[in-house]
Design a protein around this nucleic acid. Structure first.
Lengths: 229, 229, 229, 229
DNA sequence: AATGAATGAGACTTCATTCAT
DNA sequence: TATGAATGAAGTCTCATTCAT
């Protein structure tokens, strides 16, 4: 479309591959894997049915490419911004918000995973597995640093912490898509981050102080009242 | 499955719907929705192809019945045991372990959901949605009680707490299936429960707060009583 | 339903057969042969699916019975009334009107004929063929009488006259069902009858011809008689 | 059918739609709509099962195409020849003969109409209805001209005349197929045409003359015979 | 490299008919 | 005689994939 004429052959080919992936992403994200046909994707890509097969071996392969692309973009954009943030809390908060917004926008893309991974065993060594590992490594590094600096709870095993972090968002994203109340996202992120971070000492101290005040006040009232007797 | 071989024909017929659901569950759980054929299910059920359609309108309907059945068994067995447990911690721990073991045993059953729910909108009012709501209500009740008694963190909004609880397990179950190290399940449950429960210190604070409540109430009563004097 | 309790076994059976035929007629006449299912017919009849097969060998046989019944009622009611009418014109007019109204009310019943008669050859000797022959015989008799008396054109071969008479109405009934203008029926009948009846002038010629016949016959007899002398 | 055997592959492809229609016509015309399967048609066409569905949405659509094609050929060939004939009688005679021969050769094609037209209402505005309208318009034009010139009876409403003309042939064609006596067709056409045309004055005169002759002859014979007495 | 018509395996589904009860 | 669940052959139709052009 808006391609300069000076593209090399190689660039052209790459552009076409991207075009197909984008078309596929859009349709997969609307209809899901099963109800999407290769013909639809070809049409949306502006190429012939057979052309899709020059770039992708079959439908599963194309779906895999879409997910790969999704993870790559997700990983790149996340890492880039994380590097610019200094505190652990900022980083975790950004990562949560970034993950949620992306996953909610294209949640059907990730839902395709079961459809193209026949068995759990083969997933272990697959490229998709590596991709996911690579993505969550961003969180892992933040968590590791945070634990060392005391900002993040060190009571949790790293992999458990990670599963809680991403699992909560996967489930939460569905809940929020159903309710479609945008303000919930902020609440959710705040609470999730709060759960992951070490509880600040002062909060605890404040709470204790308040209760002490209340206890003292009550004691005083009782003393006064009983004094009459 | 769990049917004795000595069933008479009549008994078989009465359980035919169950038989088909069981057969379908087994095959769906091995091959996934897409790669399972109705012919396979019929064969495994020991009935003719057409017979399946006497009980279920079509493949989607059958898959829905399998999931419905799964949720019902999950809800019933969970509720039954929860009622026998007294402390919040015991209940939450049991629920987590129960959920994990069931979901891990039949995780492909739940993975069918995307394949049979075309769009999020229609899911909202569907029977499956109600089923899920009904199931998570078990946790909701435990959480509500726990928050009142101070056993569970009251700093989290109920729906967020629930999403964290179930989301963590959904994600964690996949991780653990990949690693297939059974001892991880105990670790995972312990840490998840620990995260949901109030920490000992804040439990102390909650307890203090409760005492403050009681003292304040007593003070009020005494004040009222002595005022008359 | 409204059956007296004193029905004999035989009567009961006959009643059930009628009930099924009536139900079948109604549904065939709405959906046509192909889109009607035996289950629908059984339901409408108030009997079980299998029961229909106690009375009729199969779907074709049932359809045949419906058509047979239709023809019998058509033939009986037509013959009965025709016998009460005296002039040829009255008879032909009645027959046309009677045929049209019945065929238009249940035209899909006759449309089933192609579906159940695979080949023309076998139709020739079939019971349905005889039934039709029996029915059109009513017209044939009227036509024969009418030709002798000069009321009906004798320029036409009997079978051609019959085909014109019934064919016109078959085609015309469809046209009129499409237009659904009731007054057209009267017009149509009048014109068809007019076409079949001798015009006044040719009636005269016919009469003359008849007299010629009689005279020629007389001449022959006289010649024979006088030849002996 | 009428395709030379030396067609190249490319040419075959270009005529694939026609090829399928021809194959379908042949099988529909032998087995009828219901007993014809798409697989048979595909085989007879020399294409794969799925290919038929590239050209026709489903079985009904294909049957409709066959009928459409039939009507188009019928209309074209009729109109072409009619234009070359000068007198009304010649035209009507040709049209009758042409209609009869075509309908008799492929009468099962037209018999499919009830099977694919569920209800009369929807037929009104359908393409098939237009097609039929277009075809009978040929007769309508001839009839209109003939009425003006006095060649055709003007005592009949045009649509009634048309229904009589085509209806007679539809019915008559079945009768004649049963009897399979080719000479009947000529008789039938002559009588049908005679019925539609105005009766020539001379015919009436001739008839009268003939009867007069007969009466005179008979009288003479009787006189001779009685003279002996 | 691109096309898109053709393929054909195989899926889902219907429904006339049977038969154990 | 009546039932109606079960049958399974047969049918329609889809769509991922191929391959001649």
């Amino acid at each position: 479309m808006s391609m300069p004429k000076t593209k090399t052959r190689r660039e052209k080919v790459e552009h076409r591959e991207e075009t197909i992936i984008e078309a596929a992403r859009e349709i997969f994200n609307h209809r899901g894997y099963r109800k999407t046909t290769m013909a639809e994707i070809a049409k949306q890509s502006g190429v012939a049915d057979g052309t899709v097969y020059l770039y992708f071996k079959n439908k599963e392969d194309l779906a895999r490419a879409v997910i790969t692309d999704f993870y790559r973009r997700l990983t790149d954009s996340a890492q880039q911004r994380v590097d610019q943030l200094s505190t652990t809390k900022e980083r975790v908060t950004f990562l949560a918000r970034h993950h949620l917004s992306n996953v909610m926008a294209e949640f059907k893309i990730l839902e395709m995973l079961p459809a193209i991974n026949v068995n759990m065993e083969s997933y272990g060594g697959s490229a998709l597995f590596d991709l996911n590992k690579n993505y969550v490594a961003i969180f892992d590094r933040i968590a590791k640093d945070g634990m060392q600096s005391g900002a993040i709870k060190s009571s949790l095993t790293p992999w458990v912490l990670r599963d809680i972090f991403y699992g909560s968002m996967e489930y939460g994203s569905r809940t929020m898509l159903l309710k479609s109340r945008p303000e919930d996202i902020d609440d959710f992120v705040d609470q999730l981050v709060g759960m992951v971070m070490s509880s600040p000492k002062s909060a605890k101290a404040n709470l204790d102080a308040t209760i002490a005040d209340r206890l003292e006040l009550a004691a005083t009232r009782i003393e006064k009242a009983t004094a009459k007797l």
